[in-house]
Design a protein around this nucleic acid. Structure first.
Length: 475
RNA sequence: GGGGCAGUAGGGUAGCCAGGUCAUCCUCGUGGCUUUGGGAGCCAUGGACCCCAGUUCGAAUCUGGGCUGCCCCA
């Protein structure tokens, strides 16, 4: 078996795998926008199916327009400051210049909140918990990268909530964190959760909480964010409700989102030198059956017929058991099929040939560790289910091991560190910026849900009282 | 924001400096025969010089502009 890719050269590995596993076609002639292949889209849809199911438990799906009036977009001053250099504008209808230029949504707060004002009159209308999965547009000026930094984000799941009190809004943030933890656990993706520093919060938010995962090259990638908006947008868009006592109050709001970076994370975190390695819950094909057929020799035709029959029966049984299974009866040679389906990340391969059939069995090969063993045909279906579960657990365990958090106490140690590092830092922007400039790394933020200690208690820069923060080079 | 490099078939490339026969090689597609337990072999066949202008008898090659992509620095 020879490796076809080198995961240690992550950049090259990543773009090569997107092409060869047929996730995205990057040849579309507009910068920063890409085409989903059928296989990539099936992966995306399975991942988003999990997310959608989790969201549907306590949210309602909505669909707001892509176009936003210029004056609405510009209403919230802090908000627009964060986005104004990244907005795509529609300025003409045909050859006629529009009276009011229209923005392609960079995010949907300013599309939704004027409508929230119409929907919310009484405390009985609250809470509102909605989400949508839509495309958004940002004129990225840094180098774009498929699924990671896009000019058209095709799969932005954004949730927006409005509540009668601040306490309820904060509870909602906690519920949303639980949903996201659940989601990434199902994808077997490890993460750290931090409260972003003041200077890196969502424009217009009171504070921002983020999930980051660790990529193979030691950089972190932000994979989810949650924003406590407080009453900021409610004041801007005049979203009030009449309370039980008849008084008029502003709502408290939150919003939180996940983009197709979660697909990038699945690819990057689990993949290896043979290609994709997909967690069974999101694998478009969970099991591939490869018949081993010989046609030469005197009584071979009947033997190969028996192999084909056995493959068909197994295929049928697995399908009936709800497994996403594919029978590869193409004329390729078995070796070529192995490489092909490994690139596609299929979690389990079943080989079935004359030698297996003679024992009334088949051969299982796991994608995650290439372990190979023989299984009786009579127990194959249940063994498939057990194996897929076990692969899921193994993937999760392996990924968790890779996400180590280093602890440092001085700058020399920090400069030599790789990956995610925990250290004590005060919350002043000057200290954070100094640290970022001297190390080239970014402050992810204050650790939430800590299970480890940061070493010291004094800020690594100014020696004042410090918080426990995580630092890493980022995407 | 600043600087550099590149664009040749579906993918990857040679040729470009020094203009000149049918544009090289690998992969791939199609048809056929033989094959099939880790990327099969043979035969036949298909497919490209990013766009626009200029220089020239003649441009993939030189010049200018455009479009697209990549890399480095801030």
């Amino acid at each position: 078996m020879k490796s076809v890719l080198d995961r240690n050269n992550f950049s090259e590995w990543y773009s090569e795998i997107l092409k060869r596993a047929e996730i995205l076609d990057v040849r579309y002639p507009v910068k920063g926008v890409y085409v989903w292949y059928p296989y990539g889209l099936r992966l995306r849809n399975l991942i988003y199916g999990i997310l959608r199911a989790l969201m549907d438990e306590e949210h309602e799906e909505v669909l707001f327009p892509l176009l936003i009036r210029r004056d609405e977009l510009l209403k919230e001053k802090e908000h627009i400051k964060g986005f104004e250099e990244e907005v795509f504008w529609v300025t003409h209808g045909g050859t006629t210049e529009l009276d009011v230029p229209l923005a392609l949504r960079p995010t949907s707060e300013t599309a939704m909140y004027p409508v929230f004002k119409l929907w919310i009159r009484s405390h009985r209308d609250l809470p509102i918990r909605v989400y949508q999965i839509v495309n958004t547009f940002r004129y990225e000026t840094k180098h774009t990268r498929p699924l990671i930094r896009l000019r058209e984000i095709t799969s932005f799941k954004e949730a927006h909530t409005a509540h009668a009190s601040r306490r309820e809004a904060e509870e909602q943030i906690n519920k949303a964190i639980a949903i996201y933890r659940n989601f990434f656990d199902r994808l077997a993706i490890p993460y750290v959760i931090t409260k972003r520093p003041e200077w890196d919060k969502f424009p217009g938010a009171e504070y921002t909480i983020a999930f980051d995962t660790l990529m193979p090259d030691g950089r972190t990638m932000q994979i989810a964010t949650l924003h406590m908006l407080g009453e900021n947008f409610a004041h801007t868009f005049d979203i009030r409700y009449e309370a039980e006592d008849g008084s008029s109050k502003f709502v408290n709001q939150t919003c939180y989102g996940i983009s197709e970076r979660c697909v990038a994370a699945v690819i990057a975190v689990h993949g290896d030198d043979h290609g994709l390695v997909l967690p069974p819950p999101v694998a478009p094909i969970q099991v591939v059956i490869v018949p081993i057929i010989f046609t030469s020799g005197a009584d071979k035709p009947s033997e190969s017929e028996a192999v084909k029959r056995a493959c068909n029966v197994l295929h049928h049984e697995l399908k009936g058991a709800g497994v996403r299974v594919f029978l590869d009866d193409s004329p390729e040679r078995p070796g070529a099929k192995y490489y092909y389906w490994e690139m596609k990340g299929v979690p389990l391969r079943i080989e079935l040939g004359p030698r297996d059939l003679a024992n009334n069995s088949c051969t299982f090969v796991r994608r995650d560790n290439f372990v190979k063993w023989r299984v009786p045909l009579t127990t194959a279906v249940s063994e498939v289910k057990n194996t897929l579960d076990d692969i899921q657990h193994s993937l999760h365990a392996r990924a968790m091991e890779r996400l180590e958090i280093g602890v440092v106490s001085d700058e020399t140690e920090l400069k030599n560190a790789t990956g995610i590092v925990a250290l004590p830092l005060c919350d002043r922007e000057s200290c954070g910026k100094e640290l970022e400039e001297s190390t080239g790394a970014s402050v992810l933020g204050e650790v939430l849900y800590a299970s480890h200690s940061s070493g010291g208690k004094e800020c690594i820069i100014c020696a004042r009282e410090a918080k426990h923060v995580l630092v890493a080079r980022t995407y």
